[in-house]
């Protein structure tokens, strides 16, 4: 009989060890109006509330919510809606996926050296993978998904499998109706440079030029900059008055 009990007890312990533990998600700070939805109804969010996988969180105008996910902080900005898609933690790995339906979030992901950390933020167009990083992610139907990295690096992958590594001053922007993201430096270039292309260039050639610069042309012996090319078609009209 004693043997039976000890066998059952050890079996239970082994079973518990094998089962993945769900990391705790706690509401750390609420500023303004915020609500959560775990079934069909929206209910007011309260401080120190524990949230489960599948819960949706939404914020009102001028409001924000800070969530603590095992030391990592997620700030849900105003007029945003997120869903906790997946959240699991074990002694070997931690795996979290936050879905951003619309709005903006800031993610400060804590790097735990001992375990493999996977922290993903998904939108309808792409997914960002963060590790030991701070990033600002926003999504809307007009501007698409925009990712700005404040610290570290972020891996991006869209539904077509196109991957990008974002760090420093690079900005990832993928619009809903496009297969590939905007030029990664477009945010920096927007105010300083004007992109000029020849009329004879195909879309593919233009995208190659955007990705790799002017040093991948067919004639490697001669560098042709977009500005050089533009010179050829520039027409000046002088109007005397």
């Amino acid at each position: 009989m004693k043997f039976k009990y000890s066998t059952i007890a050890s079996f239970c312990i082994i079973l518990c060890m094998m089962m993945p533990a769900f990391a705790v998600i706690t509401v750390e700070h609420i500023n303004g109006k915020a609500a959560y939805k775990d079934d069909k109804q929206w209910k007011p969010l309260v401080l120190n509330q524990k949230l489960e996988v599948g819960t949706k969180i939404s914020t009102g105008a001028g409001s924000s919510v800070v969530l603590d996910i095992d030391g990592s902080k997620i700030t849900v900005r105003q007029l945003s809606m997120v869903r906790i898609n997946h959240n699991m933690a074990s002694s070997e790995e931690s795996n979290t996926n936050i879905g951003l339906k619309y709005g903006a979030i800031n993610a400060k992901v804590k790097k735990i050296a001992a375990i493999r950390t996977q922290f993903k933020i998904s939108t309808p167009v792409a997914t960002s993978s963060v590790r030991g990083t701070e990033e600002e992610v926003s999504f809307g139907p007009q501007s698409g998904m925009i990712v700005k990295v404040l610290e570290g690096a972020v891996g991006m992958e869209n539904a077509n499998g196109i991957a990008n590594m974002i760090k420093g001053k690079l900005v990832f922007q993928l619009k809903t109706d496009q297969a590939r993201p905007e030029f990664l430096l477009s945010d920096r270039m927007g105010n300083t440079l004007v992109k000029l292309y020849l009329d004879s260039m195909t879309d593919k050639e233009q995208s190659m030029l955007e990705q790799f610069g002017f040093d991948t042309g067919a004639n490697p012996g001669k560098f042709v900059t977009p500005l050089d090319q533009a010179k050829a078609k520039a027409v000046f009209k002088l109007i005397w008055q």
Binding site: K33, A35, K43, G60, A61, M81
Partner: peptide
């Protein structure tokens, strides 16, 4: 406040 958030989500 929940009614406002519900309204925003309905519109979205």
């Amino acid at each position: 406040s929940v009614a406002d958030i519900e309204f925003v989500n309905q519109v979205a």
